[in-house]
Amino acid sequence: MSTTAVESGTGSGTTPTPPGNGASDRARAEQRLGWLLAGPAFVVMLLVTAYPIAQAVYYSLFDYRLTDQENISFIGLNNYAVVLTDQIWWISFAVTVFITVVTVAVELVLGFALALVMMNALQAIRPVLRAAILIPYAVITVVSAFAWQYAFSLDSGFVNSWFSWLPGIAADTDWFGGTYTSLLVICLAEIWKTTPFISLLLLAGLAQVPDVLQEAAKVDGATWWQRMRKVTIPNMKAAIMVALLFRTLDAFRVFDTVFVMTNGANNTETVSFLAYRQTIARVEIGLGSAVSVLLFLSVVIICVGFIKGFKVDLSQARGEN
């Protein structure tokens, strides 16, 4: 059986023709209206994102300590050299990549399952079910981090006593006493919190799969699994990629959970945490800005990698096809 996918962009014929020399007056008017409508938002975005980013890039070239403002000096790329030659940067980078890969992979599988459940649930319980699945996403990350920390902590936690029948878990298992156990709890909390987000995006993708194709496959005698692999997933590839991209960008900036649970102990520091510590705790604005800029570059690389490598069409997320 061959893969059956609907080409995006050929749907209802609303795709505007690119306005050029030969564009009609109407197309030009529409373009002008488009700029007028998007313009204010574009200016606001420049103010609230481009300006701080530019400022961070500028500060990262200076030796700038907040409590010693008389001795600010230009040092070129020295801050970047310090960061990139430091072992701590690379450990934090590895930890961040680990958390990102583990959480996004698990969330994708779980999120897909939840999306299927939401899609196929009985009409009567569908609203309740959707609300129930989305609740964790409505919880503030710091609050969820504290809740998970209390659950696993030695003095107030219940995990040790509930799961003591599992090998490796005893009444005195100190989850935050080692790197891998700490990372496990951090990943669990992240997964619990953001799976609803991914399942919401995937639900939108599922809804876009045309029923006609499903029915045709059924008539052809395809099993559930075959339909899933050959019809459903190929048709929602764009939605999957957008969900993955958004979550990867988000997961790479993980901060709150680590800050609350371990405060960076036992090599659980992430890149964002490193930026926080240099900028806010050490008040070394220059060095901290360099870490932030490197974090920004990592995120840009991930983003470009996804869009170019997997041919993600971001307009899919907005249902524009």
């Binding site: 902590s153 030695l154 003095d155 005195d172 298992t173 100190d174 935050f176 006493g177 102990a265 036992n266």
Partner: peptide, 15 residues
């Protein structure tokens, strides 16, 4: 004790 590496003043006063 088992949770020594995560024990702050509060945990210790409880213990």
């Amino acid at each position: 004790g088992p949770g020594f590496s995560t024990a702050s003043e509060d945990e210790n006063s409880n213990a």
